[in-house]
Design a protein around this nucleic acid. Structure first.
Lengths: 210, 210
DNA sequence: TAGATTGTTAATCGATTAACAATC
DNA sequence: TAGATTGTTAATCGATTAACAATC
């Protein structure tokens, strides 16, 4: 897909937060907001907000501010929230089940369609609104008959390293990684990692050095 | 605590990843590694590694490289992993239980000592290696009689906003936040957030724009 | 010693902030 | 219109990369 202009990585990482705050404003029925007010709400500079939003153009108006509804919708589109992502979860442990059953994701188009686990005791169980847990050994077959956009990987590192080639081979477009490891995948496969232990270490750093 | 030199935010965020890779090298019995080899392993530039590690000084040696054991230990200290953090978890849902029971955290000094939940059906239950679930209403009292360094908050945003003042009032030093919201806390309280939905949106952005 | 590799300075690149003319 | 506020350029700040002399 072609971008209007090239949007920098730093801006992209901020978009979901803008989106969240715009959602709050929308719920409150706010129609428009100035970069100044928005900056106080979000605790960033007004200058940064104007620079960032300007990439998308046309939602600000001098003397008035930004149209909340339009901006919310536009940022949603840019984030790819106007489509459906067929999503599976590898690992039906506590993290895997949490992801598979969280309604907030499906509300945004991340449709949870299957969980996979090696534990036979879990096979056939359901999570959330009827998402089935399948044997991990069925994954390969599943990928042959189902298009999968995103696979969330919520199993230990070693097992994860064994599963990833199956996902790649099976045509999964993106991996949402919760294992404490980095994957080696072809360029066309996207990996987005949530390294919880790294987050916790950044926290302990802050405790020790403040 | 006083830093030797001022270490930039970007470097700090990379430290846990260095630490993880050094742990792997240590397990493999590697005694020393050059910035060149390390850069190929970690897929960053050798220049960045030398710049980063140079902040701590004394672990590199010309013609030899870096001593793995010493560097691992030193970075561990800088990250604050040489001490114990009394840790509690607010919310005994799937995320809360996952955090409370994960052995990897306690192995690094993050001692999980109690969970709190408002659901009476869970009160008295145990998670992981005997960590009890208490009523949320007992939290205030608990904080009076126990020193808590870190509280992981794994409940929905609204409930979280109600609990945070109790944590702050109770002298909790740092909050590890899993709710989809930002907290307003005094300067001396640290907040480290894991915004899963934001991570997922960054992922969908990459899918749509690659 | 000769070769390898760091420590560190300088150059480049990118991101943030400030400022203000344009304009609703 | 006058006031408010954006869009956008220029200035600043910070982070990354390149280069090479120092040195083990």
């Amino acid at each position: 897909m072609q971008d209007r202009k090239l949007i920098s990585k730093a801006v992209i990482n901020r978009l979901p937060r803008y989106y969240r705050y715009l959602g709050l404003l929308k719920d409150q029925g706010v129609e428009h907001i100035s970069s100044g007010d928005f900056s106080r709400m979000m605790k960033v500079t007004a200058s940064q907000i104007r620079q960032d939003l300007n990439h998308f153009g046309g939602f600000g108006q001098q003397g008035y501010g930004y149209n909340v509804d339009k901006l919310y919708e536009e940022i949603g589109k840019i984030l790819g929230l106007d489509r459906v992502y067929h999503t599976i979860v590898i690992g039906a442990g506590r993290i895997g089940q949490a992801i598979g059953s969280y309604e907030g994701f499906s509300n945004r188009g991340f449709r949870m369609e299957a969980l996979f686990d090696r534990d036979p005791a879990k096979h056939g169980d359901e999570v959330g609104s009827g998402i089935k847990i399948y044997p991990l050994s069925y994954l390969k077959e599943y990928l042959k008959t189902h298009k999968v956009d995103i696979a969330a990987v919520a199993i230990p590192s070693e097992a994860a390293n064994a599963v990833v080639p199956i996902l790649v081979e099976g045509g999964v477009e993106a991996i949402w990684n919760f294992a404490h490891t980095d994957f080696d995948v072809p360029d066309n496969v996207i990996v987005q990692s949530v390294h919880l232990s790294e987050s916790l270490m950044q926290l302990s750093y802050k405790i020790v050095h403040h």
